[in-house]
Amino acid sequence: MKITKTFALEKIANKIRMDTLQEIYYAKSGHPGSSLSCVDILTVLYFNEMNIDSQKPNDENRDRFVLSKGHASAALYATLAEAGYFPKEELNTFRNISSYLQGHPDMKNTPGVDMSTGSLGQGLSVANGMALASKMDQKGYRVYCLIGDGELEEGQIWEAAMTSSKYSLDNLCAIIDCNNLQLTGNTNDVKGLNADSIESKFKSFGFNTLRIDGNNIDSIIDALSKAEQTKGMPTCIVAKTIKGKGVSFMENKVEWHGKAPNDAEFKKAIDELLKQGKEIDVQN
């Protein structure tokens, strides 16, 4: 069922943020910053945009999603659980030896995961393959690929970008989670990557490009709809996001790239998110 009301989607994103943090807190490992930055994008994809049915995770006509930045797995799992692909209790087993919720997504064992990822730079090629198959079989399904901004330093992304464009994959939508930070610091300092340079690169590779606030539900809905209407070329949405979005002390802090919160930090983060959830309720 597609959810169209902005506040309802905001409320879901708020829940997913709490679940994401809880996974990482229980596992005592994971990537909170990178996960929180893309929660709004995942929420819109899974609850508004994609043609999917959590009861039929392998339906061959479904839209596909590739989390090329596989380290944001906690956010993907929280989203999939919220969408009903597996019970929410499973989230508490994240990264545990008995769990199917691996540190990085494993398509063979986790319902709803369309591609195993983790080694950066490989997702766009795979998404192209899916989009090509969709076209060959005239199935019409769309393929969405979420890529980190730091991940764009991998050369394979640009090999793949040429392929998306060569085959005019207008059923493919790449979304760049442009949170400006990677493990060692600012993406611009590391390799000259910022929203401007990223957009111009994709444009020059033959993509229709869109620049949005990637933490704004309405902007994301609008951009995905424009992407769907664009024919004859692939679309790249450069989504400006905030790393650690929703938890003030994690926001824009590179040290929260891959570190679990301790007891006090977790409580503080959840309190903040609960408050945000109440504000959404009050405003609507």
């Binding site: 061959e60 596909r64 590739v66 398509m107 369309d114 591609m115 490989q122 997702g123 766009l124 090629s125 795979v126 998404a127 192209n128 393959g129 899916m130 989009a131 090509l132 198959a133 969709s134 060959m136 079989d137 394979q156 793949a160 392929t163």
Partner: peptide, 11 residues
């Protein structure tokens, strides 16, 4: 990688 995507979609 493209081959992997094609294979995941039945090719």
């Amino acid at each position: 990688g493209t081959a992997a995507g094609l294979a995941s979609s039945g090719k």
